[in-house]
Nucleic acid binder design. Structure first.
Length: 481
DNA sequence: ATATCTGTAAC
RNA sequence: GUUGUUACAGAUAU
């Protein structure tokens, strides 16, 4: 069927070569921190880079979703014209006739009634963006700071939480928690391009990045709109661009930290003089500043941050940006972080629990899955509930979640038991337990047993701090570049 | 040991 | 119908 599908070892070879070149880019960007890369367009348009980019787009879940041209990656693959399409794309990139099409707008519901605007690029545009990312990410990763955790390779939300736990367990008891208003939508193009230009001198690459920012949007009603600010939520490059823009914050805080608070003695002297110490932890547009000082010290930082963000076109959300003490606690990345007394002692400890919002939301989803008409049979129901519970627990096991897990076990058991009983009309609970449940309580169907969240062991992972490697840190075996 | 596919979480 | 990045988990196949 696929007359010209890329074969496996051509792909493997391409992936190895791309990784080798990425490692070099990463190394060069590190050796000369002010180096501006002048000749990277040829990499973006390189057949191997485009092939790896295509592979990425093809295997994403969005391979079934089309942009404004109505083409899906699946259709292109089925038509068997992949290599020809990549070749044509390469030609259009090199002759500079390539133009990104507008993104297709899709509104999806967020939590509690709000809407989120997605901008879905065409498959071709996704490939070019993916190729751009292959080139730009190793370069910009070199300048990104350890305090930034979102959208970055090898970094998990749990790393950010471990950092907060680490400093919260020391003198950093006041927290400025913040939210940037419609971050993706409001990033200023000129300011963003200025930051991209610090590392990239290649005019063709800069033009491509800018073109994707300016590609415009085709609304659900079919109207064309230009995009004067922001980067489309759905673009492969968008998370990287957001980090490039938001790294102004990281840079600002690192500077202050390195100049005046970098060593233990300096921080101690500052505290002696009544001065505060503070640190930023950021996950995409969500961030906190841990402050060893007073509430006023934290309040002061709020204005500083607003000033740093303003040139990027970014504004703080008035309601969601606030100062709290660890005594009151705060929500961050789905967790609730708060001081509690350790059992039987007088010692305060920083604990991280699943937030109320996270627990409510998973309960709602279990309720929806266990409503009467949701599933044809018990086995399918268990499959759905199990995968939900398993995924949820694996995210929240990095905290003090055993209480929540126990509660969830109880809640789900009853929901599923109720579902079963409705299907066996007339049976009493006692008969049900005897006839349907294994050992009187275990719920099993076709060898699938209801997952018990209470069996998930919680782990406490240490703050990995400054020692998280990038995928390009170690040299790879003999790249042929 | 490779590779498919599904799912969860964060944003 | 729902895109994207990152992390994690499970199932299947050889």
């Amino acid at each position: 069927m696929n007359t010209d599908a890329p074969n496996e070892w051509a792909l493997l070879r391409a992936e190895r070569r791309v990784l080798g070149i990425q490692t070099k880019l990463h190394r060069w960007a590190g050796e000369d921190r002010s180096r501006r890369f002048d000749d990277v367009f040829n990499l973006v348009a390189d057949p191997d880079f485009l092939l790896v980019a295509w592979e990425r787009v093809r295997s994403n879940t969005g391979a079934r979703t089309a942009g404004v041209d109505g083409l899906t990656a699946r259709q292109i693959e089925a038509a068997g014209g992949v290599l020809a399409m990549l070749d044509d794309l390469r030609g259009r990139l090199r002759s500079r006739t390539f133009r990104p099409l507008p993104v297709r707008e899709r509104m999806i519901p967020k939590s509690e009634g709000k809407l989120r605007r997605l901008g879905i690029p065409t498959v071709i545009d996704r490939i070019v963006q993916a190729s751009l990312k292959l080139v730009l990410e190793p370069i910009f990763e070199q300048g990104f700071r350890p305090c930034s955790y979102g959208f970055r390779p090898n970094r998990r939300a749990q790393d950010a939480l471990a950092e907060i736990h680490h400093f919260g367990s020391r003198k950093y008891h006041w927290v400025l928690e913040g939210d940037i208003e419609a971050c993706f939508d409001t990033i200023d193009h000129a300011a963003l391009m200025d930051r991209v230009r610090r590392r990239i001198a290649d005019k063709r690459v800069l033009a491509l990045v800018k073109a994707f920012c300016k590609a415009g949007i085709l609304t659900e009603l079919g109207q064309q709109q230009e995009t004067r600010t922001g980067t489309p939520q759905g673009g492969i490059l968008s998370p990287l661009l957001a980090n490039i823009a938001l790294s102004v914050l990281d840079d600002y805080f690192i500077q202050a930290w390195q100049q005046t608070m970098s060593d233990h003695n300096a921080r101690y002297r500052r505290r002696g003089k009544g001065l505060a110490n503070w640190r930023l932890t950021r996950y995409a547009d969500d961030w906190v500043v841990m402050v060893a000082g007073t509430r006023t010290d934290a309040e002061t930082l709020r204005e500083e941050i607003a000033t740093v963000l303003a040139p990027m076109g970014l504004r703080l959300s008035e309601t969601k940006t606030r100062v709290v003490h660890l005594r009151e606690g705060l929500d961050f990345l789905g967790y609730h972080i708060q001081w509690r007394f350790k059992r039987g002692t007088n010692n305060r400890h920083v604990y991280t629990y699943p937030s109320k919002k996270a627990l409510t939301s998973v309960k709602h989803r279990i309720r929806a899955l266990t409503c009467q008409k949701a599933h044809p049979d018990l086995a399918t129901l268990l499959l759905g509930v199990n995968s939900l519970l398993r995924g949820w627990c694996h995210y929240f096991k990095h905290g003090s979640s055993s209480g929540a897990f126990g509660y969830l076990n109880h809640y789900t058991w009853w929901r599923v038991a109720r579902w079963i009983r409705k299907r066996h009309a007339g049976l009493s609970w006692r008969e049900l337990r005897r006839k349907v449940f294994t050992d009187g309580y275990r719920i099993v169907a076709d060898g699938i047993e209801l997952f018990n969240p209470a069996t998930v062991a919680t782990v406490h992972d240490r703050w990995r701090g400054y020692h998280i490697p990038t995928p390009w840190s170690q040299p790879t075996s003999s790249p042929t570049a």
